[in-house]
Simulated assay, not measured.
Amino acid sequence: MHRLFEKFIEQLSASVDAADLHEAMASAAAGLEFPLFAYFTYPPASSDTPLVISNYPSSWTSNYLRLRYHSVDPVILRGLRGLNTFHWGLDRDHRYLPASQQEVLENAAQFGIRCGLTMSIHDHRGRFAG
Results as ranks from 00 to 15, higher is better:
N63S: 13
Y39G: 06
P74S: 08
S71M: 15
P98T: 11
P57N: 04
H70A: 00
L77G: 05
N55D: 11
N63C: 12
W88G: 00
F40L: 02
A38W: 03
L105F: 06
F34P: 03
E103A: 04
F86D: 00
L67C: 11
L97P: 04
Y96A: 14
L51I: 08
R78V: 10
P74I: 09
S62C: 04
Y56S: 05
S71C: 15
N107K: 12
S58C: 11
Y42T: 03
E33C: 15
Y42A: 02
G89T: 00
A108G: 06
I76K: 02
E33F: 11
E103D: 12
N107F: 03
P44A: 15
V52S: 03
T49V: 09
A109W: 03
L97D: 08
T61F: 12
P74N: 05
G79C: 03
H87C: 08
G82H: 08
T49R: 09
A38R: 00
R66P: 08
A99S: 14
L80I: 09
Q110G: 11
G79S: 10
F86L: 06
D93N: 14
S47E: 15
I76L: 04
A38Y: 00
W88M: 01
Y56E: 11
Y56I: 00
A108D: 05
A45N: 13
R92F: 13
A109N: 02
R92L: 15
S47M: 14
L105I: 06
G82Y: 09
I53M: 05
A108H: 01
V104W: 01
R78K: 14
Y42W: 10
S62G: 08
D48Q: 09
A108I: 03
F37W: 06
L83I: 14
P50C: 07
W60R: 07
L32V: 08
R81F: 14
A108C: 05
R92W: 12
S47R: 14
D91F: 13
Y56K: 07
T41A: 15
S58T: 15
D91P: 02
S47G: 09
Y39K: 05
F34L: 11
D93M: 09
L51S: 04
N107Q: 15
A45V: 15
L51D: 06
H70M: 07
Q110W: 06
N107A: 05
R81L: 14
H70S: 01
V52N: 01
Q110S: 14
D91N: 12
L83W: 14
V52M: 09
H94W: 11
S62L: 08
V75I: 11
Q110L: 10
Q101G: 04
V72D: 10
G82C: 07
F86Q: 00
S62A: 12
D73E: 07
S71D: 15
W60P: 01
L105E: 00
A109P: 07
T61H: 06
V72I: 10
V52C: 03
L80R: 09
Y56N: 05
A108S: 08
W60T: 03
N63R: 14
R81S: 13
P98V: 06
H87N: 13
S58H: 10
I53F: 00
D73I: 09
P43A: 07
L97Y: 05
T61R: 00
L67N: 15
F37Q: 00
T61C: 09
